[in-house]
Amino acid sequence: MEIHTYEKLWLALALVLIVGFIGTITYGAAGVGIEMIDDEGGTVDPATLDDHPKFGDPGVEKTGENSYDVYVVARQFVFEPGTTQPIRVPEGSTVTFYVTAADVIHGFNVVGTNANTMAIPGQVAKFTVEFDEAGEYGLVCNEYCGSGHHVMEGKLVVMEQSEFDSWYEQQQQEGSN
């Protein structure tokens, strides 16, 4: 088959570019350790979410010295927690999110960051985020979920450790009463 010399050169460069892209992405995944959302979070029955040990009363839970789990339910058109009450975590912590949807497919994005996942009924999205500094972030549903999609938002507050501790203690006491 007759291929022009310049075209051969172009073909070779194109292949180098492609292999280069795959290489950098592989490095990002394996070397830098950027985790993908995958099937690790498992599944959940969306019809009985209210009876679920975690999603029945979603929120923040301390799991170790500096580590926390946050359970979030997305439903038309709120995040629980996130919308009426902000999600609160302490600075310098490692937080694992478990996000699911109660009705239709939603998105869960910490605005301006790569903490971004789809929330699909029946599936649990699990991902880990490190919060270095205190501050406030917006939460936004970035998948169309119905006529009120544009009002579905929330807030995530990264608190100073002492402030968080007293808030968390108060929550625990209220919960046990």
Binding site: A14, I25, K126
Partner: peptide, 26 residues
């Protein structure tokens, strides 16, 4: 960004996608 699909399958799709650049570059 979908839960419920293992990372390996996403990786396969990514690799195929990158090779799809080839016919467009040609």
């Amino acid at each position: 960004l979908d839960p419920g699909i293992a990372e390996g399958f996403k990786f396969i799709a990514m690799t195929n996608t990158m090779f799809l650049l080839l016919p467009s570059l040609l």
